[in-house]
Simulated assay, not measured.
Amino acid sequence: MTVLAGCRVVTPGGVLDPGWVEVHEGRIAAVGVGMPAGRNGRAEKAVTDLDGTWLLPGFVDLHVHGGGGHDVTASPGDMAAAVAFHRAHGTTRTLVSLVTAPLDMLAEQLSWVADLVEHAPRPDGHVVGAHLEGPFLSHARCGAQPPQHLLDPDRAAFAGLVRAARGTIRCITVAPELPGALDVIADAVDAGVVVAIGHTDATYDQTAAAFAAGATLTTHLFNCMRPLHHREPGPVGAALDAAVACELINDGVHVHPSIIRMVARDPRRLVLVTDAIDAAGAGDGAYVLGGRAVRVHDGQARLAGSGVLAGSTLTMDEALRRAVVDAGLPIEVAAVAAATNPARVLGLSGRCGAIAVGLDADLVVLDVDLCLVRVMARGVWS
């Protein structure tokens, strides 16, 4: 049992300054304002003084393809190493995102994700499951996805992927205008899979139909989708109208800070994600994503030749810092976007995503400049 004290604790009810958090057997046992005290005003438990730093809930990333020089589709070892890289940047729960590929390759990669989920040292481990970003996406808005492997939504193909994943697919991105999309969306919802709308040229009405069928998320809103227009609002307008959760890649490249502020006007809507590729933390140079050549320059990942954005080099600690410093969000709103909202999307609100009694002690310590200092997952410092 330990108490983390002398810090600014970001809780669902606001910032406790100073505040303290008691951790016992991997969970948050108590949260309070001021300094912890026992009888006669003296602390009765081991106290770690965090010296005025920020204490936030551990980040939850719904969308990551790699990091630290490791592509999650290269091998099981690379997948695990990429996850470890992001954990060191404060991501205490993550999905592993797979780009479009032949179905047999996706099935093999899904089995690697299932191994990470099933063989975690403790139940409900760091890897929550898989995110299929494809293959049921639009050719017109495929972005960096390999177009030759895109498919129209197919119920049998989806069922095969579900079997290969051994129940660990947690999210799938679908373009709702494609033939068969609503059937696959219904099957995914029945299987307990979160459906995200993305890589789509859908109209407002087509997207609204997908939300009515059970889709509850958008994949990197604004990017790789029909743009907002005042006469045809498209997927952006439908998503904002329906108040579904909206991923945004807050790297200063994919969207303007004003977009972050606009979506955050409803604090339950904004979900910060990285969409990171293997180049995150590995520097500029030549990389490969889904078999396509990628060039990273000044931290921006783009397809070689075309200049199309190809994921990002973002980490969740930077995404949160930019939300506060560049977009001007209150830190408690940024913390909700980086932890609470994505945990809710995945149905994990009873386990993580906030600093509250009874939840797992997934915590990040940030200095006064919002730079990462330490990471705790289930009560253990990384």
Rank of each mutant, 00 (worst) to 15 (best):
T173S: 14
G19E: 06
D317Q: 10
M316N: 04
A215L: 11
P257E: 01
L303R: 05
A343C: 08
D115C: 07
R166M: 04
L178G: 06
G134L: 08
A29P: 01
T100S: 14
R265Y: 08
V3I: 15
A280M: 10
I331C: 04
H297S: 13
P121T: 11
R351S: 15
S75M: 07
H63V: 07
A157L: 10
A101M: 02
I355V: 13
P257K: 05
P227K: 01
L217D: 06
W54C: 04
Q300P: 04
P153E: 11
A88W: 00
A286M: 10
T340H: 08
M79R: 09
Y287C: 01
W112C: 15
G353T: 04
V117E: 14
A343D: 03
G125K: 08
V308P: 06
A130I: 13
H139R: 15
A181F: 07
A210E: 10
A37E: 14
G379E: 07
S75G: 10
C171G: 09
A280V: 04
A208M: 14
E332A: 09
A361P: 09
V31Y: 05
G252I: 11
V373F: 07
F158T: 10
P227T: 02
P123G: 12
L110F: 01
D201G: 15
H131E: 04
C7W: 10
A157W: 12
V325S: 06
A130L: 12
W20H: 06
P330D: 14
V357F: 00
T94S: 15
D61F: 07
A334I: 09
V333G: 05
A191M: 02
G192L: 07
